[in-house]
């Protein structure tokens, strides 16, 4: 493996910690009935969003999914405004009009989470088209899951980006389940990356629990895209530590769907533990230093919860704001 600098390694770990602690707090708040709507947590998949976004510039674009909190944080989003949005408050990213599945931060190129499976894929293609048209070397990344790989938007978008040679990186977070249906039941192939060949684009499989590995393939894909070499399909094999959505037991009425072998594989592959081990083994930082980092992240998350709780509800007057320009 090519050497990655210590500062990048620590940055990857810190971004993953921010996601993990944020999501754990969100899960707790949801359980206590403090959050409206649905939340889909990114716990277990942190290495994918972080590894990819660490390879991006601030002016690059991303589009996201219903499981989008991790992508916002990985791209550098503000957890106060995120938490406030999850509470539906006026100080949230979308003034309480978006919620968990519609968080966006255009100031950092985060063009939106998306409640429709596969809905963000064509939007990223348009952002890539725009970058190329304007003659910048920006790239657009689109995150989506294994479920979205079976949507028509996936097929149309990959083909469109390939034929127009657009600077788009398609990142499939294969967590093995489309909602509750195992991916193996929804497709007759093992690797979604194999589909890249059908569009005449590069396809690569990476261990999505290893942030460094993800970072390395992302750097390569980003370089290719910036240089005019067109799109790449990255399939990151990962695990969803929790369910599809928090509180899903209520929908499932006690039915189980996780495959035992998948659960066992997941237990051995926590992305934070993998990174923690790497950092300590390579003497990049000590366990004590990482614990301090963790504590600081927890404090920041707690203060985001305070910020959200203390923020006002949106006014009724705001109902008709943000309509036509």
């Amino acid at each position: 493996m090519t050497e990655v600098s210590a500062s990048v390694v620590l940055d990857l770990y810190q971004r993953m910690l921010r996601i993990r602690r944020f999501e754990e707090a969100v899960g707790g708040l949801f359980k206590q009935g403090q959050l409206p709507g649905f939340v889909h947590l990114y716990v277990g998949e942190e290495a994918v969003g972080v590894g990819v976004c660490a390879a991006l510039r601030a002016d690059d674009y991303i589009t996201s999914t219903h499981r989008g909190h991790g992508h916002v944080i990985a791209k550098g989003g503000d957890i106060n405004r995120m938490m406030a949005e999850l509470f539906g408050k006026a100080s949230g990213y979308c003034k309480g009009k978006g919620g968990s599945m519609h968080i966006a931060d255009f100031s950092i190129g985060m063009l939106g989470a998306c409640g429709i499976v596969g809905g963000g894929i064509p939007v990223a293609v348009g952002a890539g088209l725009s970058a190329k048209y304007r003659g910048t070397d920006q790239v657009a990344v689109c995150f989506f899951g294994d479920g979205a790989a079976n949507e028509g938007s996936f097929h149309e978008s990959l083909n469109l980006a390939a034929t127009l040679t657009l600077p788009v990186i398609f990142v499939c977070e294969n967590n093995g389940y489309g909602e509750f249906t195992p991916a193996r039941q929804a497709m007759n192939i093992e690797n979604i990356a194999d589909r890249a060949a059908a569009y005449g684009m590069f396809g690569v499989i990476v261990d999505g629990t290893d942030a460094l590995a993800v970072y390395m393939v992302a750097v390569e894909a980003v370089e290719r895209a910036r240089a005019g070499g067109g799109p790449t399909l990255i399939e990151a094999k990962t695990h969803r530590k929790g369910g599809h959505a928090e509180g899903e037991d209520a929908f499932l009425a006690g039915q189980k769907y996780r495959l035992p072998e998948e659960l066992a594989a997941m237990a051995a592959k926590d992305p934070l533990e993998i990174m923690h081990r790497y950092i300590v083994e390579h003497a990049i930082a000590s366990s004590g230093q990482l614990e301090e980092m963790d504590n600081a992240v927890v404090r920041a998350v707690n203060s985001a919860i305070d910020f959200a709780r203390n923020s006002p509800e949106p006014d009724y007057a705001s109902l008709y704001e943000d309509t036509w320009v």
Binding site: C94, K97, G98, T323
Partner: peptide
């Protein structure tokens, strides 16, 4: 535009 609080 609406869903993202006027950002788009």
């Amino acid at each position: 535009r609406y869903m993202f609080g006027g950002q788009a």
